[in-house]
Design a protein around this nucleic acid. Structure first.
Length: 517
RNA sequence: GGCGGCGUAGCCAAGUGGUAAGGCAGAGGUCUGCAAAACCUCCAUCAUCGGUUCAACUCCGAUCGCCGCCUCCA
């Protein structure tokens, strides 16, 4: 049973989709007036993983993430730059798509634009007016907060208390300072659409109501976004939709804030790190590991140290995958082979525990922890195998490998494929290795050059091989040198391989390489 | 002032009414031609103070500290 923490009720609840077997999720997307920063990216990752998990659980999931491409901030930015606001919107929409694509997570199923939803927005405003929940004034239309009994049910605020804290300058047409615009009259030069109230544009909030209802229908399953959107954004979305007679989202999920130097990462604070800058320095898998090793509702500190930690942590998982694959490939060389039912059971147990964590309000941190626990136990077992205390069970190892790989896949963390991560040194050694190496026409000169100590030329030959992610021949040659105790040659070759982007490890089964990340 | 959240080892971070997963870092050791990886050992009584209970870190209350929202904000 999947349980999700619902911000509306402040507790975990069993997830019961509106339509059996389906799930509709709406995740607040960007207002396109700036580049995406790390904090912005957290919900995108969170809800992509939620979709992934729900699909794994057999649900037909639709994830909608809006792109708000008409808004005061876009207009302000355009004015400041002396450009058209549509131009700004297009530029940052493209940047948003490009940057999030680099994260490597699959796109939402629907990515609607506010500007493509104007008719629905106008319809919604009309309904609100006819129901007495909104009123036109000076070409704008305002939502009458006090007309909706449920106002404040998400943020747990009482209207009277909000009233005291109002800091916004009262706009001339507003009947109540808390009322908010669902439609804004356009000033000259601003983007505008014809409406019953004159030319104008949607207010902030209304576009999400319209798009959520349009693509997922009334009473859809999950609405998500950053915790900072609870008020007023999400509160207002609820008010606008439900006052119009359309039940809105049934479960609200809010991710915690990313912090930098102890404060929320925000443009206004000025402590942002752009997603693209981070991705220039770290591969997506590292950033995803960083995000997912903390529960989505907890605040998360962002720093270089944290990323380095995530890199190291991810490295252990990646290495484990490579090591296990290597062992399976070289199972034939194990001193003793046989069944190890305990390891198989352990792997299956990990699969279940992983699932339990994921079912429990998407506890990715606990789930990843279980993966690490499995890795630790597998290494312990492997160490026993090396000491002759246990037989090598290639099938059990394969099961571990599969569990790790599948699990990472469900978390959308890229795991290197077996072929790319590791290339086995083959099943020959000593003279056989040399025969194998020299038997390869392309490598024949390399071996000779190596024999003559012409390492630069050898490197050139290997560059081709290594470039295509295949270090098999280099491994064979190195095994040969090691078998002949030609240590300086072996060391030199290792250096070349490392330079070509591989980590090199010596094992009883031969030279093992792992592509560096 | 109102609403909400958090406080677990050097750092990060899961978790539970019955005596604390995991990661990073650190110390020592094993393996190893060297290296790397790995393995072994060591490293917390869960902010503080009360209360409930056979039993609490986990429930309740108070205190202290930090953070978020109430204005744009993922």
């Amino acid at each position: 049973m999947i349980r999700l923490f619902n911000s509306l009720t402040r507790q975990k609840e069993p997830f019961e989709p509106r339509d059996a077997g389906k799930a509709g999720i709406y995740c607040c997307g960007p207002t396109v007036y700036n580049l995406v920063h790390v904090g912005n990216a957290r919900p995108y990752v969170t809800f992509a993983v939620l979709r992934s998990w729900l699909r794994h659980r057999g649900l037909d999931v639709t994830l909608v993430t809006n792109i708000t491409d008409v808004d005061d901030k876009i207009i302000a930015k355009a004015k400041a730059a002396g450009r058209e606001s549509t131009e700004i919107a297009e530029e940052y929409t493209a940047a948003y798509l490009a940057d999030t694509d680099r994260l490597g997570i699959p796109r939402p199923d629907v990515e609607p634009r506010a500007t493509e939803t104007i008719p629905e927005i106008i319809d919604l405003v009309c309904q609100l007016i006819s129901g007495g929940h909104a009123y036109p004034a000076h070409g704008s239309v305002y939502f009458r907060v006090r007309s909706f009994d449920g106002y404040g049910k998400l943020s747990k605020q009482r209207i009277d208390e909000l009233e005291e804290g109002v800091r916004v300058d009262a706009e001339p047409g507003k009947a109540d300072p808390l009322d908010f615009a669902v439609w804004k009259a356009a000033k000259p030069g601003e983007p505008a659409w014809e409406s019953p109230w004159g030319r104008g544009r949607p207010g902030w909030h209304i576009e999400c109501s319209a798009m959520g209802l349009r693509y997922l229908g009334a009473g859809f399953d999950v609405h998500g976004g950053g915790r900072d959107l609870i008020f007023p954004h999400h509160e207002n979305e609820i008010a606008q939709s439900e006052a119009a007679g359309l039940p809105f989202a049934r479960v609200w999920m809010h991710n915690g804030m990313i912090r930098s130097e102890g404060q929320k990462m925000a443009k206004s604070v000025g402590n942002i790190f752009l997603l693209r800058e981070v991705l220039d320095r770290y591969e997506p898998a590292v950033l995803l590991t960083y995000f997912l090793t903390t529960h989505y509702r907890s605040p998360l500190e962002f720093s270089a140290e944290k990323l380095e930690e995530a890199k190291a942590a991810h490295g252990r998982l990646r290495d484990a995958l490579g090591d296990i694959d290597f062992r399976v490939a070289h199972a034939a060389r194990a001193a003793r082979r046989g069944a190890c039912p305990d390891l198989t059971l352990r792997a299956e147990a990990a699969r279940l525990t992983f699932a339990e964590h994921m079912d429990d309000d998407l506890n990715t941190a606990g789930a990843v922890g279980e993966l690490f626990a499995l890795v630790g136990e597998t290494y312990r077992y492997l160490s026993e195998v090396d000491h002759g205390e246990a037989p090598l069970d290639a099938e059990a190892l394969q099961t571990v490998y599969d569990v790790l790989r599948e699990s990472l896949g469900l978390l959308l963390i890229p795991a290197p494929s077996a072929a790319a991560a590791i290339t086995a040194a083959g099943t020959v050694a000593g003279d056989e290795a040399l025969a194998c190496v020299t038997g390869d026409v392309a490598l024949l000169p390399a071996a000779r050059l190596a024999g003559d100590g012409r390492w630069d030329d050898v490197a050139l030959v290997y560059a081709d091989r290594l470039g295509c992610a295949d270090a098999t021949y280099a491994c064979l040659l190195r095994d040969h040198f090691r078998a002949q105790k030609q240590w300086s040659d072996a060391d030199r070759l290792r250096a070349e391989m490392q330079e070509a982007g591989f980590e090199v490890r010596d094992t009883p089964q031969g030279t093992q390489v792992v592509r560096k990340s």
